[in-house]
């Protein structure tokens, strides 16, 4: 059996009052400065979160509508992954045609942003290229439709919503982890 590897004992630990302490005040001062910066950063993060820079707050709320205000969409500019949220479609009377509202929702919203439920239930949902077309029966307008979202993966996703005979609404949503 070979001898175990050995090394002579060298007293290398710095001394304070003849006691081996190994204090490194110069390093510690640097660390304290770093700590202050970190806490400052933490406060900034908390303030950003309170303002809604990471979603679910004042900053992330957004609204956009078609030029003729037939359709207005309330959505979150910034979403959080695996967190439920609601996207609301406001339909003006001018978007109702023949007692129906026909609205096209792109796959960006259905798949990427994870549309879970649409309420009220549409009378007809028809698959079309790049999305789904919903048809709602309408007695009177204005009215609203809510889409529950729950994005799975972080990333930046574009979506498109369009009612029959109107300009489309195109927006991008940033999903943070």
């Amino acid at each position: 059996m070979p001898d175990p590897e050995t090394n002579p004992v060298v007293d290398s630990v710095p001394k304070v009052n003849e006691i081996a302490v190994g204090e490194d005040l110069a390093f510690q001062r640097k660390w304290w400065r770093f700590e202050r910066i970190i806490w400052l950063l933490f406060v900034v993060i908390l303030v950003c979160d309170l303002l809604g820079l990471f979603g679910r707050g004042w900053f992330s709320k957004a609204k956009c509508s078609t030029p003729d205000h037939a359709l207005t969409v309330d959505y979150q500019r910034i979403e959080r992954a695996s967190t439920p949220s609601t996207l609301t479609l406001h339909f003006d009377p001018s978007s109702v045609q023949d007692r129906h509202i026909v609205v096209f929702v792109s796959n960006g919203l259905i798949k990427s942003l994870g549309a879970r439920r649409i309420s009220p239930q549409p009378a007809i949902s028809a698959l079309s290229e790049g999305g789904v077309t919903y048809t709602f029966d309408v007695r009177s307008a204005p009215t609203i439709v809510e889409i529950r979202l729950q994005p799975q993966m972080p990333g930046e996703y574009a979506f498109r919503i369009q009612t029959a005979g109107n300009a489309p609404i195109r927006r991008t949503v940033l999903v943070v982890p």
């Binding site: 304070v16 009052n17 302490v21 190994g22 204090e23 490194d24 005040l25 390093f27 510690q28």
Partner: peptide, 20 residues
């Protein structure tokens, strides 16, 4: 050192290290 920090003297020769 970054992970654990270093030992710090709090008091020596009957004087407090106020900064620490």
């Amino acid at each position: 050192k970054i992970l654990d920090g270093t030992p710090l003297v709090l008091m020596e020769k009957s004087t407090w290290r106020t900064e620490t």
